[in-house]
Design a protein around this nucleic acid. Structure first.
Lengths: 349, 349
DNA sequence: CTGAAAGCGCTTACAG
DNA sequence: CTGAAAGCGCTTACAG
């Protein structure tokens, strides 16, 4: 049995222990903090304090601890995506799973910053973003990034890691990204090896790094194959993907189409639906490759983004940043390789 | 342009604003807190303070706010389940989605308490659980509940809501649960209406309320139908579900089997696999009903647990508890109805 | 080896 | 209408 609390039914504090053990509150703090170097306490005092703490059912107040010291073993997760990953089929969910796994493994709690009302109504301003400072460090993600508040956070020395490559702010943003360039080039290589000479790459009309990198990889490989790059890249909003686009390609002798699958997922989907509606089958009528795996056609050829690993590594990098001495903290940026997906939509030209 | 911070590059505090505006820090706090009743401030002071705050890019420190006051608009999520919902197919994920949606709608951030290392190694003791107090209130879930720390939290007046019905601690635990009794009885009614007279109910050998309630509903309906209840309930560990069990039922003339789908999901799965292995088809050879929807056989007849709604309502109840005056806070307990699933595994006896 | 004091950044009576 | 002071529960120099 224990008394379960300090005076008045509230949870016991260090002061209650101090009183019970006949020592100062400072001493209690010292004892409970464990063996900090340079501090020596008599064994008898230690025991008395420990016993009193046990008896009173003492548990440190995490809020006070955080205010007075610096670490609280909480990591933030903040998203600039239009929808927080509440969607079961969402692009972000596997990333979150990885984040959660690694956080648990490293003994960190997670704070999901969702509280600003509807995702759309949300202003990613400084006030909103500064709330992340309640944590030891924060993970950010989303296709686009508001530079000002991130700059501000970074400038204040707050540890953060972006999930996804970022080149804003003179490359000062630490991130764990995906090597879309290499993966995308490999897809083109595969098509070329199958004899395809007239290829189109359908991409979103939106310049997030993940899209830009895919395009870079595609063009690199096209050039390397000695093919003309002029008409390869086709920018389209999902709503502008229709029968006439496909018909035009076929007239031009196009034999393979590549499409990107991003966090919005709608462009690839629009293409699949248009192909289906036109009665075209892949790879019989046309070879198809997807840069990233689509839930609507998981068997398509292309590559898979290591989303879970992305989450895990981001957490590890963030914890590294938090742990590193502020002086020696360098901008850490890493890229993860994608896994090729053989699939069944690429055939000979 | 603004100076972005107080002196020395650190984020601005109220004291910095006070200095800049030539008022006291108290006044700054008063102004920024908005219109608290009984406090009147001259418009000119207000404006000066607001202007200075804006200029310095002031954002309140949530930790300090929480320590000094009581609310910080963060809700906790804590699980006693053996696995935190990191599993994509996990039972808990839809609940979490509901929690997140509603939290966002109500302007609350979410803290996921995952940080105690591996789920199994985790000791749900007071120290671990008290960390939830960093939030305004916390959601708990999992089949089993360690009474002592929950009692302790409850006793300290900390708002909490259990996701799932609970009758421990003399019914003092607020919860949002599922009406398994009614839903399970309805399933039996359906079987009886189809002429089934010899029914077996396969359940886990584990007494969580969700299992107990299903059994209660099943037995209620069996009794109501004037059928013997003696042999209806069969308790089995998933590993003990095999061909001999099924063979025995068939010899005994059993025409319908009901199985529960819980958060572990393994018992229903074991049954499906055994039926498949035995080459039995439902409803041709045997009618089958699942109490809860299984990802392994979503088309099975039975009912669907309103998991997303469970999450949403839990958040609402929790926020109600937080908002209510401590005195008038009553134990709030509610049960949600399940959605019947017609399915294709029930046929005439 | 131990304690008194200041401080983390706020809120909240309590005075004027 | 505004300010000085105490307090939330800790940690961390700084003295002894």
């Amino acid at each position: 049995m224990d008394s379960r609390s300090g005076r008045g039914g509230r949870p016991a504090r260090q002061a209650d222990i101090a009183e019970a053990a006949g020592v100062s509150q400072t001493t209690v703090s010292l004892v409970l903090a464990g063996n900090r170097e340079g501090v020596r306490l008599s064994e008898s005092t230690r025991q008395r304090v420990l016993k009193a703490a046990e008896k009173l059912g003492y548990v440190p107040d995490p809020v006070a601890t955080r205010l007075a010291s610096s670490r609280n073993h909480m990591l933030g997760v903040y998203t600039f995506a239009s929808a927080f990953p509440t969607d079961v089929d969402g692009f972000y969910y596997p990333i979150l799973v990885g984040v959660e796994e690694e956080a648990a493994a490293l003994g960190q709690d997670l704070v999901l910053f969702t509280g600003t009302g509807g995702a759309d109504a949300r202003a990613h301003d400084r006030t909103t973003i500064r709330r992340t400072r309640i944590t030891d460090g924060c993970l950010f993600f989303g296709r686009h990034i508001p530079e000002e508040p991130i700059d501000w956070l970074l400038g204040s020395g707050f540890p953060l890691v972006y999930i996804g490559r970022r080149d804003e702010l003179d490359g000062r943003i630490p991130f764990v990204g995906v090597d879309y360039v290499t993966a995308s080039a490999a897809v083109v290589d595969r098509l070329v090896a199958q004899g395809h000479r007239s290829i189109r790459y359908l991409r979103e009309d939106d310049d997030a790094p993940s899209s830009t990198d895919r395009e870079t990889g595609v063009l690199q490989a096209v050039r390397r194959a000695g093919l003309p790059t002029a008409k390869v890249v086709v920018r389209r909003a999902p709503s502008d993907v229709g029968p006439s686009l496909i018909a035009g390609w076929r007239r031009a002798g196009v034999t393979a189409v590549i499409v990107e699958e991003t966090d919005t997922g709608s462009l690839a989907r629009a293409l699949f639906e248009t192909l289906d509606a036109a009665g075209l089958r892949c790879p019989d009528d046309l070879s198809l490759a997807v840069l990233g795996r689509s839930p609507y056609r998981p068997e398509a050829s292309g590559f898979e983004v290591p989303r879970r690993e992305l989450g895990r590594r981001s957490v590890r990098l963030l914890v590294d940043q938090i742990t590193a001495a502020p002086g020696e903290r360098r901008t850490a940026q890493e890229l993860l390789p994608c896994t090729p997906v053989i699939g069944n939509t690429i055939g000979p030209a």
